[in-house]
Amino acid sequence: MVGRRAHGQLKTTVLALLREAGEPVSARMLLERWPDAEPKPAFTTVITVLTRLQQAGAVERLDGGEARFRVRAVAGGVAAESMLAALLESADRGAALMSFAEQLDATDLDVLRRAVGGSAP
């Protein structure tokens, strides 16, 4: 659990640094810019995180003398909506997300209306 949490925070930090950079950066450059507030990971750990993000399609790798990475560009708001739709669809299959205001179907609503109505003081 500790390991997974650490990995999740690494992912978040790596993505934030890549976005801030605005240009392709290498793993070494990421480590140089690592925020002081967070424990600095090993070089190989950063490479692992970058590789996983690349496999997920979130990051692209540019080959050269030293491999550099950048966040994959997405065009405008439409892309955000379609990515969100894809996420909600797969999350629905995998019971993977917990939404604040989920949309329910009519039978669920019926059950609820009765249950909540019946609880009135």
């Binding site: 992912k11 978040t12 993505l15 934030a16 890549l18 976005r19 993000l53 997920a56 399609g57 979130a58 990051v59 966040v71 994959r72 560009a73 997405v74 892309a79 955000a80 990515m83 969100l84 894809a86 996420l87 797969s90 999350a91 629905d92 299959r93 995998g94 019971a95 993977a96 997300l97």
Partner: peptide
């Protein structure tokens, strides 16, 4: 359920990378 969860984790990473 398992494959849906894996896909969701990947989709969330994509969204986080592109739109945060």
């Amino acid at each position: 359920l398992r494959s849906g969860r894996e896909a969701a984790i990947r989709d969330l990473d994509l969204l986080a990378a592109a739109c945060t």
